[in-house]
């Protein structure tokens, strides 16, 4: 299991990276932490002819608390984001999800943007980005554009970046005051690839009712999906057991599930229902992550 040969580029600046992508775009892949890309290369399931490493591009490793959200540069490592104080206090869903990503040694190297760009249907971070309407900041030698998460994820292992673009950064909006969040997933093992998972943030009004729910589920052969109908149904309601169960049922009927040898489609669908229900109970009971205002 040795990778096929490739040309290697290691620019030391973002401009350099974008220049390489302009030149080699179609044939090139970006190497950040490599935790998803390199296994596929070792298995020779991917054989890019040019690899553009951003690992020497220190200017991309920032984690910035901006006014409208936490911005993680393309080289921000998952472990650093998971332990960033602003992230912990103001982006609890992101941090909760990061606990589930690989092992410590994978998160030490893996990047937040890398996982998003890889767009694995069973990866945690795309679900979070979708639930929170994160802004994906795409850059190319001709300029920058902001791609909403919903437009960024096209399908399994497929994003909407142009060949010459890279995901330069991602902006996660801060959790609103009064919100609580929960990321749960379940797999055949207690840690590792999930069968299904749920990213949920609920903002409660002073009357205890759900003012706004944000919900994304993963578990199909396709990329994680936002459960907008469930969000609408939950808005304005009291989240009790019955409401949670109904929301689970509704979500399960909306998602795109597929069976494989890890779990059949019926199970995945049923699991989505249970996980949504349990996540809602957790946030309603206050057991889940709470955003703190600073």
């Amino acid at each position: 299991m040795k990778p096929a040969p490739f040309e290697f580029r290691a620019p030391v600046s973002l401009d350099g990276v974008l220049e390489e992508m302009r030149e080699h775009g179609e044939a090139a892949r970006i190497l950040a932490g490599g935790q998803s890309l390199v296994p596929l290369m070792n298995l020779r399931m991917l054989q890019p002819s040019v690899l553009v490493s951003i690992n020497h591009c220190k200017e991309l490793s920032y984690i910035r608390a901006e006014e409208d959200g936490l911005v993680c540069g393309a080289l921000a490592r998952q472990w650093d984001v998971e332990h960033d104080q602003v992230a912990i206090q103001r982006c609890p869903l992101l941090v909760q999800a990061l606990h589930h990503v690989g092992a410590r040694s994978n998160r030490n190297r893996g990047t937040v943007c890398g996982s998003l760009a890889h767009a694995d249907p069973l990866a945690e971070l795309p679900a979070v980005a979708l639930a929170l309407d994160a802004d994906m900041i795409a850059a190319s030698s001709t300029g920058r554009r902001v791609v909403p998460a919903r437009e960024f994820f096209v399908g399994a292992l497929e994003n909407s970046l142009r060949p010459d673009e890279i995901l330069e950064a991602v902006r996660f909006p801060y959790a609103p005051t009064g919100s609580r969040s929960c990321f749960i997933e379940l797999g055949n093992r207690n840690h590792g690839f999930a069968i299904a998972g749920v990213a949920l943030e609920v903002t409660f009004g002073e009357d205890g009712r759900c003012r706004r729910a944000r919900l994304a589920v993963m578990g199909g052969e396709n990329i994680a999906k936002r459960a907008s109908d469930t969000e609408v149904a939950l808005a304005g309601s009291i989240i009790d057991e019955a409401a949670a169960r109904e929301a689970g049922r509704l979500t399960a009927s909306l998602v795109d599930v597929a069976g494989d040898f890890h779990a059949d489609a019926a199970y995945r669908r049923e699991l989505v229902a249970v996980l949504v229900e349990r996540a809602l109970i957790q946030v309603a009971s206050g057991a889940a992550g709470r955003a703190r205002s600073i």
Binding site: P39, L43, N188, R189, N190, H191, G192, F193, F261, H262
Partner: peptide
């Protein structure tokens, strides 16, 4: 063989 790798051939880890 659909799972000739250790991501898909599942063996118990410490948490299991």
């Amino acid at each position: 063989m659909l799972n000739a790798n250790l991501l898909d051939y599942l063996m118990p880890m410490a948490l299991d």
